[in-house]
Design a protein around this nucleic acid. Structure first.
Lengths: 236, 236
DNA sequence: CGGTCGTTTGAAAATTCTCAATCGGAGTGG
DNA sequence: CCACTCCGATTGAGAATTTTCAAACGACCG
């Protein structure tokens, strides 16, 4: 019983895959799961290695990276609180997953999760839905990268972040005023958007000059004119 | 029993989700599934509409499209024989799925499939794995679109097609000689690769001039120097 | 035969990248 | 407390790539 207290107070109890489980079912999962702190830049999955663990992101933010042949990294996805890492079926990691901020994850050995899920169909269905949603996100990012200008990419990404940011998430400072710390360097932003860091910097500067956003300093961004950003995001 | 004959002779019996079912289990699915012919350019899923059906691609090739705000379509994914369309959970289609060639699909009402899958965990697990694989594909395409030159994109896509083409698939004519009809116009190639059709045309011409491929006419392409293409695909 | 559609090719325009210099804040050590 | 250094951010200018606009070409079809 006391085991469940850990889960009941978990910030993502009602957003991670665990939402599909009743409190009493959670006991079984709690026995095989373990919370783990990871520090910024720490890697939790290596591309090319066998996937031995799965995990839920409890706090923080991770990047999913593919290494290009020229050695450069490309961020192909982001993981936020509540998102799931890995696949219950045996597999080889195709991407490297790295913490962008100091974070907490709830780690579960893959094999054990595979067995657990077989006995909890609701959870498996939910994971399927989540994976499907991730696929849709990835496809929307394809749309973004394929044909849109640098400014449109930046505007779209900022809007995405505002809609995705979560109270209590370290990426958000004051949601109501649309001021948030994106926790990403210009270079990382460039990796996500498929641009050079200089182009990202120029784009942000222009948005600032036009009064759409403010850059109070550091990695903080304030959205001043959301509707104008939306227009920009839609324009080619 | 006779019902199963239809499935036993199905070209994707051993590649679509059905591989997870024994012949006797297939009966139940056969009762709710229906083969349907679709013609080139016919739409099977409309973005924005409620998803009422799922389907397996039996023969042919489909595109998954997002419409950009400027009206242009962007192909964010391709579906080949054996691939699955839709999601067993209730959802709204986020993309429009259109046949690129005359095709055959095996249609199953979503609600019925949802129930069926709940009773066939293996199938659900396989779908999860497939969806996960699609997600990885989409992320690899993000990698491709984000940082690579037009020629690298084209080379990569051609190599992808050669590895994905299947005997009996209409996209393949003579696999052993790496000659195939890609079934896509230059404009559609451009949609996939995030380029203009002129750039695609120029890129193919240059590959031809350099002796890496041949363009016998129509939409047929012959791979002449696969290793050189691989080098080009890897280079930035 | 004319018309249409897709492809190819050319040349100019636009965008983004690269290289380079400068700026600014955080942390360190005197 | 201040100078110093380092790293990331910004800004500038030229180079490279891609897009756009245009024209010509060929295949296919009525």
């Amino acid at each position: 019983m006391s085991e469940n207290h850990v889960c009941r107070s978990c910030p993502v109890r009602d957003r991670a895959l665990c939402v599909s489980l009743a409190d009493e079912e959670l006991c079984g999962l709690r026995l095989i799961a373990r919370k783990r702190q990871v520090t910024r830049n720490q890697i939790v999955c290596w591309a090319g290695e066998e996937a031995l663990i799965c995990a839920n992101v409890v706090t923080g933010m991770f990047k999913v990276c593919a290494s290009a042949a020229d050695g450069r990294d490309q961020i192909v996805g982001l993981l936020h609180a509540g998102d799931f890492i890995g696949n219950p079926s045996p597999s080889t990691n195709r991407f490297t997953i790295t913490a962008l901020t100091d974070s907490t994850i709830c780690v579960i050995p893959r094999q054990l999760l595979e067995n657990f899920m077989s006995a909890h169909a609701k959870m498996e269905r939910l994971l399927l839905d989540r994976t499907h949603a991730s696929l849709e996100d990835a496809r929307l990012r394809i749309l973004l990268l394929a044909n849109r200008s640098a400014e449109a990419r930046i505007a779209t990404f900022l809007l995405d972040l505002t809609s995705r940011s979560i109270d209590g998430d370290c990426t958000t400072i004051r949601r109501e005023r649309q001021i948030f710390n994106l926790g990403l360097s210009r270079g990382q932003l460039a990796e996500i958007l498929g641009l050079s860091s200089e182009t990202v910097s120029r784009g942000l500067s222009r948005l600032k000059d036009n009064g759409l956003i403010a850059l109070p300093g550091g990695r903080t961004i304030a959205i001043l004119d959301k509707s104008a950003l939306t227009v920009l995001a839609g324009a080619s």
